[in-house]
Write a protein that binds this DNA or RNA. Structure first.
Lengths: 251, 251
DNA sequence: CCAATAGTGTCTGTGAGACAGTATAAG
DNA sequence: CTTATACTGTCTCACAGACACTATTGG
């Protein structure tokens, strides 16, 4: 039918007769690591809240790996990018609205990582301020506090503690890869602020660095370095049994 | 048939009836950035050779984008990983044998990046010592010297110079992403040595750092820093019209 | 007053940057 | 002797780490 069209090039003809279904095709998913920062209340009135680094997980109610926990994710349709698909996930499961930091993490492609069929997962990492999230309160969607030392991962939610074997597929590896990426980038980027509320004290910000890096920082050094990235709001935070602190915002 | 088998679980039954072909499936490729270092001979007998940072490209002899240049690559079969597929590419096109450094770079997934059908490309970056490669000498397989400033990419091979529009698909973006990754990692990893011959002078090593980073380094500082990563072989390189230099190897 | 965090001043050691100066081969 | 690279010594400046010291609140 296009034969008599003068604009038909050899390339257009080639494409018209190209049959993609002639090859065997795998599935492509995106799994989304949603990281945030939680507070657990302190042991005594004068102490400040303890901060935790946390990740959102869903409990599987379907085969395969029913009952285990996994990252929220979805298949990537042929008319959308992995980022498009990830934003759909973010809007549905945790109800995140507005701007959310998202970056591609790594593509996981072990041959038998999913028992159903060959599945490639373009894993992505999202950083959110938990206060901005309309937590659906759904059963089986929970934030887990991360404990990660010596390549061993523990995830805590109240009395429930998960180890790697309680996670479905290769999602423990995905989480560990994300933590490592974040640890690396926190030093030379501004991504911490994507997990912070608009106003915060330098003590709180330092705590967030500490839980992500997994070690303590020296306050004087931290303040010297962070000074170029933040600016004072002039406001103070009071009500704690000690000297009030200045509230800062991202510069 | 498995109905009477006592070991049949609900999960096994689920998997037996799961039909992956019920969904629409894309294609998954891997494209391999093969980076190396070239010499172009110096203008005068006393000067040392000028080094270039280079990438291997193939000229397309098929639709689509016939005549343009692209990275070597292949579709990823359902029984292999992207890394497996990349090693097949490395063994065929440039004839690389032995150990080759390979890392996953990024997965490119723009919806219309390939006019044939939806194609995801898990791009990978390989670093090779060009001396170890049995260059097939095939027509239309060439090393191009990289010139990359201000987000503009130029590729040179003798009298032939390519700009981004001479590259097929989104391969110009893949190359730029690879250069950036390498620039970042060269400072805190040992991957330079994967592009070096077993023995080299510190002057040569410094030149390689300089072409990758795109700027000059101060010899005294460079030597101070690299000292912990290299060890002298005791041998000297002579024959150049100036003081001979010590040959080093990776520590 | 006490406990706990906020915030500053300053000393010390390490290492980057800069530059001058010496060494040594081939033609 | 010239040219070009190899290699070393040392001064200065910036900054990380360390630590002591002061400030300020609620109870």
């Amino acid at each position: 039918m296009a034969r008599n069209n003068r604009q038909t090039s050899p390339e257009t003809e080639f494409l018209a007769t190209y049959d993609a279904s002639a090859f065997e095709h795998p599935s492509v998913r995106t799994d989304v690591l949603i990281f945030s920062v939680s507070n657990s209340s302190a042991e005594n009135w004068r102490r400040s809240d303890k901060k935790w680094f946390s990740v959102l997980l869903l409990r599987r109610d379907q085969y395969p790996e029913i009952g285990k926990w996994n990252l929220p994710g979805t298949f990537v349709n042929n008319n959308e990018t992995a980022v498009d698909a990830a934003y759909k996930v973010l809007r549905s499961e945790p109800g995140a609205h507005g701007d959310v930091y998202l970056e591609q993490l790594y593509t996981f492609d072990a041959i038998n990582r999913d028992p159903r069929t060959r599945v490639f997962s373009i894993a992505q990492m999202a950083l959110v301020d938990k206060n901005k999230i309309q937590y659906s309160g759904q059963r089986d969607v929970k934030w887990f506090n991360i404990e990660y030392d010596n390549d061993t991962l523990l995830l805590h939610n109240d009395n429930l503690t998960l180890t790697e074997k309680d996670l479905a597929f290769d999602h423990a590896v995905i989480i560990k890869t994300g933590i490592e990426r974040l640890r690396n980038k926190i030093g030379y980027t501004d991504i911490v602020f994507d997990m912070m509320p608009p106003e915060f004290t330098l003590g709180e910000l330092q705590q967030v660095y500490e839980i992500i890096l997994g070690h303590k920082l020296i306050p004087a050094v931290f303040r010297r370095n962070i000074a170029k990235k933040v600016v004072s709001t002039g406001k103070m935070r009071t009500g704690s049994g000690h000297r009030p602190s200045v509230l800062f915002k991202k510069k």
